[in-house]
């Protein structure tokens, strides 16, 4: 492995250094990002963060690769069907960006483990496919004071918001109850759009550039090319953040 200094000064980042500066680049290098889910959203999130030079990625997913995943989950090759997603993701990311440290956890996100998983993260990315795990990971991140970048997709549509503890309403303020669980059809490019935007939110947060999507939900419809920002506030009876404002 190259020394950190030569890595940062290599030509790998010369097209983004004018945008975030060497200080911003160093912040990415020093950061640890937890990605919950190595599927359709996790693929663009992990890939773009690794390529951008984020120093450490923690990837959590207890699924094995199925053939039906391959229309969107480009971290995984067709030859990897049957393998654990986290190990396939780690191998792909090492090939793309050998200097990135990838920590793989082939486990389900549960209340008993979520706090330990998020403990070392600077940002948590929600690339999960169900609300049960989403709410657990969100609550753990919120109570640890760690930003949580929510994304979800269905068909040609997606949504995204960034939760900054104590300064923005939380995911449970927005979505008090989970919708019925069902098998979701999705076009791969939908996950590509929303996952790329999640990666952008992380890069902006870590490098201190731009404006994040907080206190509002970004809704995007790829079929009609429509998007909306819908504002949302704190719920007084929120089970996650009520009473924690400004703590």
């Amino acid at each position: 492995m190259k020394s950190e200094q030569s890595y940062l000064s290599s030509r790998r980042f010369e097209r983004q250094l004018p945008l975030i500066g060497s200080e911003g680049q160093r912040k990415l290098q020093d950061a640890t990002v937890l990605i919950g889910g190595a599927g359709g959203l996790g693929s663009p999130v992990a890939t773009y963060l690794a390529l951008a030079g984020v120093g450490e990625l923690i990837i959590v997913d207890d699924d094995r690769i199925q053939e039906s995943n391959l229309n969107r989950q480009f971290l995984h090759a067709a030859s990897s069907v049957g393998c654990m997603k986290v190990y396939s993701a780690e191998a792909t990311l090492h090939n793309l960006a050998p200097e990135v440290t990838v920590l793989s956890y082939p486990t389900k996100i549960e209340s008993s483990t979520a706090h330990d998983l998020v403990r070392d993260a600077d940002v948590v990315v929600d690339a999960l496919d169900n609300y049960e795990s989403r709410f657990i990971l969100h609550q753990a991140a919120y109570h640890a004071g760690i930003p949580f970048i929510h994304g979800a997709v269905e068909g040609f549509s997606g949504q995204l918001t960034s939760i900054i503890p104590q300064s923005s309403p939380c995911l449970a303020c927005l979505i008090p109850g989970a919708p019925p669980a069902e098998k979701i059809p999705v076009i791969g490019a939908t996950a590509g759009v929303i996952g790329s935007m999640q990666a952008m939110e992380v890069i902006k947060y870590l490098s201190g550039t731009g404006t994040m999507i907080t206190g509002k939900l970004f809704l995007w419809d790829g079929l009609s090319n429509r998007c909306e920002y819908v504002r949302f506030g704190r719920r007084k009876d929120c089970t996650v953040c009520s009473g924690m404002e400004g703590v």
Binding site: G37, G39, G40, L41, G42, D126, A127, L128, D129, N130, Y131, R134, G151, A152, V153, E154, S157, G158, Q159, L174, I175, A178, P179, A181, I184, V186, A191, L219, E228, V230
Partner: peptide
């Protein structure tokens, strides 16, 4: 504006 919380990842 009406929308369901989409859940897929």
């Amino acid at each position: 504006i009406l929308f369901p919380p989409v859940s897929g990842g």
